[in-house]
Amino acid sequence: MMGGSGFAPWPAGIHPRERPRLGGYGEAVDALRTTMRAGGSGVLAGLFARPLIAGAWLGAVPWG
């Protein structure tokens, strides 16, 4: 898979690797979509949890 830091190499490396393995364009696109959905769920959970935790911490500090 393509290396490097950042978001772009991750999805850009999935499709070319999955296409020969799965045998076609459509199957590779489905694999890419599944991977993006799974990764997106984790990102959304993190985006929700971090402000929630920060807000709880900031709320607890004055009453510490």
Score class of each variant (00 low, 15 high):
residue 1 M to A: 14
residue 1 M to P: 11
residue 1 M to C: 08
residue 2 M to T: 14
residue 2 M to V: 15
residue 3 G to D: 10
residue 5 S to F: 13
residue 5 S to V: 14
residue 6 G to K: 00
residue 6 G to E: 09
residue 6 G to D: 10
residue 8 A to Y: 10
residue 9 P to R: 00
residue 9 P to G: 11
residue 10 W to G: 08
residue 10 W to K: 07
residue 10 W to V: 15
residue 13 G to R: 04
residue 13 G to C: 12
residue 13 G to K: 05
residue 15 H to N: 06
residue 15 H to L: 14
residue 16 P to H: 05
residue 17 R to E: 15
residue 18 E to G: 00
residue 21 R to G: 09
residue 22 L to P: 14
residue 22 L to K: 06
residue 24 G to T: 07
residue 24 G to C: 10
residue 25 Y to N: 14
residue 26 G to Q: 10
residue 26 G to M: 08
residue 30 D to Q: 11
residue 32 L to E: 13
residue 33 R to Y: 08
residue 34 T to C: 05
residue 34 T to W: 07
residue 34 T to M: 11
residue 34 T to D: 14
residue 35 T to W: 07
residue 36 M to Y: 06
residue 37 R to L: 13
residue 37 R to Q: 09
residue 39 G to S: 06
residue 40 G to D: 02
residue 40 G to W: 01
residue 40 G to C: 04
residue 40 G to L: 10
residue 41 S to I: 10
residue 41 S to C: 02
residue 41 S to W: 06
residue 42 G to Q: 01
residue 42 G to L: 10
residue 45 A to V: 12
residue 45 A to I: 12
residue 45 A to F: 03
residue 46 G to F: 02
residue 47 L to R: 01
residue 47 L to C: 13
residue 49 A to D: 00
residue 52 L to Q: 03
residue 52 L to R: 05
residue 53 I to V: 15
residue 53 I to D: 04
residue 54 A to T: 12
residue 55 G to S: 13
residue 55 G to D: 11
residue 57 W to I: 14
residue 57 W to Y: 10
residue 58 L to W: 08
residue 59 G to M: 07
residue 60 A to Y: 09
residue 62 P to Y: 02
residue 62 P to I: 03
residue 63 W to C: 07
residue 64 G to N: 06
